[in-house]
Amino acid sequence: MPTHRRPRLAALLVLFTALALTGLRAGPATAADGDVSWTVRTAANGYGDDRSSFGYAVNPGGTVEDTMVVTNRGRSTLRLAVYASDGYTTDAGQLDLLTREKESVGVGAWVHPRTDTLTIKPGKSADVPFTVTVPKNATPGDHVGGLLTSLKQSDTAAGINVDRRLGVRLALRVGGELTPRLAVEDLHVDYDGTVNPFAKGTATVAYTVHNTGNALLSARQDVSVQGPFGRLRTAAGDLDDTPKLLPGERWTVKVPVRGVAPGVRLTATAELLPLLTDPSGSTTPLKPVEATAHTWAVPWLAGLLLLVVAVTSLLVRRARARRREREAARVREAVERALQEA
Results as ranks from 00 to 15, higher is better:
235 A>P: 02
272 L>W: 10
285 P>H: 02
302 A>R: 02
294 H>K: 13
282 S>T: 12
327 E>D: 12
312 T>G: 13
335 V>Y: 03
245 L>Q: 07
324 R>L: 10
332 R>E: 09
259 G>L: 05
246 L>T: 00
269 T>P: 12
237 G>V: 06
243 P>F: 05
316 V>N: 03
295 T>G: 02
323 R>L: 11
341 E>H: 05
273 L>I: 11
231 R>G: 08
267 T>R: 09
325 E>A: 14
291 A>S: 14
235 A>Q: 06
275 L>D: 00
310 A>V: 11
342 A>M: 07
273 L>M: 11
237 G>F: 10
275 L>V: 15
269 T>C: 13
256 P>C: 02
238 D>L: 09
289 V>G: 11
338 A>S: 07
293 A>V: 03
289 V>P: 10
272 L>I: 07
298 V>S: 10
286 L>K: 08
336 E>N: 05
256 P>M: 05
330 R>Q: 12
303 G>D: 06
248 G>L: 07
283 T>R: 08
306 L>Q: 04
242 T>A: 00
330 R>P: 01
269 T>Q: 15
273 L>P: 02
326 R>Q: 14
227 G>W: 03
255 V>T: 13
238 D>M: 12
231 R>S: 14
321 A>F: 01
247 P>L: 03
262 P>C: 07
299 P>E: 03
234 T>D: 04
326 R>T: 10
274 P>E: 10
296 W>Q: 12
227 G>S: 07
297 A>F: 00
231 R>Y: 05
342 A>I: 07
263 G>P: 04
259 G>F: 07
299 P>M: 02
331 V>L: 13
247 P>M: 01
246 L>F: 04
325 E>D: 15
312 T>V: 11
328 A>D: 15
306 L>D: 03
342 A>K: 02
284 T>I: 12
235 A>R: 03
306 L>C: 06
235 A>F: 02
338 A>E: 09
291 A>H: 03
320 R>D: 15
327 E>N: 01
286 L>A: 06
333 E>V: 04
237 G>D: 05
312 T>K: 00
241 D>W: 00
260 V>M: 05
248 G>N: 04
310 A>G: 02
323 R>S: 14
327 E>Y: 06
311 V>E: 01
323 R>F: 08
267 T>M: 12
294 H>F: 11
230 G>N: 05
332 R>D: 14
300 W>Y: 11
275 L>C: 09
272 L>H: 02
284 T>N: 04
290 E>L: 08
335 V>D: 09
273 L>H: 05
